Simulated assay, not measured.
Amino acid sequence: MERSISPPPKRRKLSRSEATHITNPSNQITIYSWNVNGIQPFLQKPITSYFGTQQHAKDDGNTPRASLRDFLKRHDWPALLFLQEIKISPDDPATVRALEKAVKRDDKAEPEEPDYSAHVCLPSDKFNARGFGRKVYGVCSIVRKDFAETYVERIRPVNWDQEGRFLVIETKACSSRPRLALINAYMVNGTDNAYKNPSTGEKAGTRHDRKLEVHRLLAAECRDLEARGFAVVLVGDINIARAPIDGFPNLRTFPQRHCTNRADFERRFLHKRRPSSTSNEPSNDDDDDERASSKSTANRDDSDENVALVDTFRHLHPEKKGYTYYPRGKTFGESCDRVDMILVSSLLQAALVGAGMHETPGERGPSDHVPLYARLGFADENAKVSAVA
């Protein structure tokens, strides 16, 4: 597991066409995801105290800052960066404008640096999204403008969620690329707290119940998109670790609802092949409970089809331990889970050329999650079209 960040390589100045070719291969789409646990640090003046120890906190050019442009540059200008838990009040348009400005190319940028646009989905639910001055939940999809101009058809929320948890980017079919539906998702964290009807405010179960309902609604959304000819890319904080290999030192199995939620997500969304576990890991006594929970849930609505998405990281690294959630207040790596994922339709499995996460205190920054990525590669049939990929 990485513990530090290497100094960035020295770069000669490139023409715009050279830069596009080198940092973004013409036949690939790179997608990043990051639960930032609040966007405010990224909209303030440069901050380095979050990153690394105090003796390395000075801005020496090698230490990441809480800057979205710096993040995009450091990771070679990806086509898409999906942020979750941005925590912007729906009554605060000034912060939304500051976020849009933070990703734009300004007068100080190098000539070859691309421009980006930011699109947000914020909560409108006044009964379930009231905490911290309504600064809860919320997602932001950051799109490189040349990619958007060539491929993006529309960007929309979903009509079954009012908590600002989902934003869908639909692309056009272009050259060798299928139509994509890229879903930025911040899934519900199941708890025993009450979930209220967003229209009436009356209690309608617990957050655990709502989590299962969101699973059902999202699975239906994915099936509908695939029926309309889209290949689905589900990106974000899933709030579930799939298997023992995805939790350190142990997979969460208490309370029992965690097992139920995990089994339900597995049944509805994942390719039939079970996630891998390391050979020297002890068997989990809760596996039987999870299978029983899955069978019980399936009996309630067994007409629902599994979306059969592919877990990009686990598909490419079947036995590798890697984690995305590193809680603050604990030594980095002392307790961690892989709860953030990038899942793709089976149709895209052959196009998957890379997936991973950046597991360092520096890349975690002010958040309690580290960023993750997946890379899709397509046949380069049309040089003119693919030059902006």
Rank of each mutant, 00 (worst) to 15 (best):
S4F: 08
I5T: 10
P7Q: 01
L14Y: 06
S17D: 14
A19E: 06
T20K: 05
S33R: 10
S49K: 12
F51H: 15
T53Y: 12
K58P: 14
G61P: 03
A66W: 00
S67F: 00
L68D: 01
L72Q: 07
K73E: 00
A79H: 08
L81F: 09
E85H: 09
A94L: 08
A98W: 01
K101A: 13
K104A: 09
K104W: 03
R105W: 05
E110N: 07
S117G: 13
S117N: 10
G131F: 02
G131D: 14
Y137D: 12
Y137P: 06
S141Q: 11
K145T: 15
A148S: 14
D161P: 13
E170Y: 01
A173F: 01
S176P: 04
L180C: 08
G190H: 08
D192S: 06
K196D: 13
L212P: 02
E226T: 15
A231F: 06
P244S: 14
N250Y: 09
N250C: 05
T253M: 04
T253F: 08
R257L: 08
T260H: 08
R262H: 11
E266C: 12
R274H: 04
S279H: 11
E281Q: 08
S283P: 06
S283H: 15
D289G: 07
A292C: 03
A292K: 14
S294R: 14
K295F: 09
S296D: 15
S296C: 15
T297Y: 13
D301I: 07
D302Y: 05
E305A: 09
V307H: 09
L309T: 03
F313Y: 05
L316N: 04
G322S: 12
Y326S: 15
R328V: 08
K330S: 03
K330F: 08
K330R: 11
F332E: 15
C336D: 11
C336F: 03
D337P: 04
R338C: 02
V339I: 10
M341T: 05
L343K: 14
A350N: 13
M357N: 10
G362T: 07
G362L: 06
P366F: 06
S367W: 02
S367R: 00
D368N: 03
H369M: 03
Y373V: 00
L376V: 01
F378H: 10
A379L: 12
V388C: 10
A389L: 11
